[in-house]
Computed example of a mutant assay.
Amino acid sequence: MTTHAYPGITPAALDVDVTQDVRNLYEDGITARKGAFSVEWADRLREDVDVAFEEALSRPGGAVGRGPNRYYVEIHPEQIRGFVELVDHPWVRSVCTAVLGPDYRIVELGFDVPLEGAVNQPWHRDFPMPEETRRERRLTSLAFNVTTVDTEEDMGPFEIAPGTQWDDSPEFDHGMFPPRDHYDRYLGRAVRKYPKRGDISARTALTIHRGTTNESAKPRPVLVLGVDGPEAGNADRHDTAVTRAYWDALPERVRRHLDCPVVDELVPVTQKHTIEGLVMGDA
């Protein structure tokens, strides 16, 4: 495996060989597995996301804006029927272990929904660069994205600038938003992604990216799974929880990586995962 793999992790220690995926993450900032899940599994996910989105919009703080007509909602694992299949998928487990080590922690579950009228987001990364990444060029967290629809050109596809996860400048606002005079660099590298139901991607959220204008009448919900390595501390920014009965029914292999409270009763999440600047709209 490449020297960027977590120390001591070899392909023989993994469920599947993800050597090329690790290389992709360090070189491009993103990788993917086509057809990881069945279309039927993705359709059930869409049903669960639609129910959670309707509930979140019905109460204050249930959804946070990511720009005009674009929302993010954090949810609990029990709100989607396919949670165990997702986090226990051999490719997901192997990528997490290879990049973040055997003690990786699942810290975030949510979804983004660009609706009709969503506009281009400003180019951004999702959090400031950690010191470990700046000093050692080492990734300490991953974001997995699972589409619930077959993405088409007019639906505002996700756009990413490969290789920009290492970009570092004091000019970045909040450590996340590059100034406009950097935009030509990102536009020159920009790649739009058109995943289908059943596909999954993994990326470092440090790679500069944006959602684009949704010119259709169709929403484009995407599930987000956030995973930390031992050095990252993103769990403090999330409120994911599980009930005791759900926890007890989880496979031990999943429990070992799930970093969240076990509670008697779930409380709907009040969103706090805001990203400054995305409410600016078309930038």
Rank of each mutant, 00 (worst) to 15 (best):
R70D: 14
R70K: 15
Y71V: 08
Y71L: 14
Y72W: 12
Y72L: 14
E74W: 06
Q79G: 11
I80H: 05
I80A: 05
R81V: 15
G82M: 08
V84D: 14
L86C: 12
V87N: 09
D88K: 11
H89I: 14
P90E: 05
W91H: 12
S94M: 07
G101I: 08
Y104V: 08
I106G: 04
V107D: 03
E108T: 04
G110N: 03
D112A: 15
D112R: 14
V113K: 13
V113I: 15
P122T: 12
P122H: 12
W123Y: 08
R125G: 06
R125P: 03
R125E: 04
F127R: 13
P128E: 11
M129Y: 05
M129E: 10
P130L: 11
R135G: 02
R137E: 05
R138T: 04
L139A: 03
L142W: 07
L142I: 11
F144N: 00
V146D: 00
T147D: 03
T147G: 03
T147V: 09
T148E: 05
E152H: 01
M155K: 01
G156Q: 11
G156K: 09
F158N: 02
F158T: 06
I160H: 04
G163M: 04
G163T: 02
W166P: 00
S169F: 00
E171N: 01
F172R: 04
F172E: 00
F172M: 07
H174P: 00
P178T: 02
P178A: 08
P179L: 13
P179H: 10
D181H: 15
D181I: 09
D181W: 13
Y186G: 05
L187W: 13
G188E: 02
A190V: 09
V191W: 09
P195V: 10
P195Y: 07
K196Q: 08
K196I: 02
G198Y: 03
D199Q: 05
I200D: 01
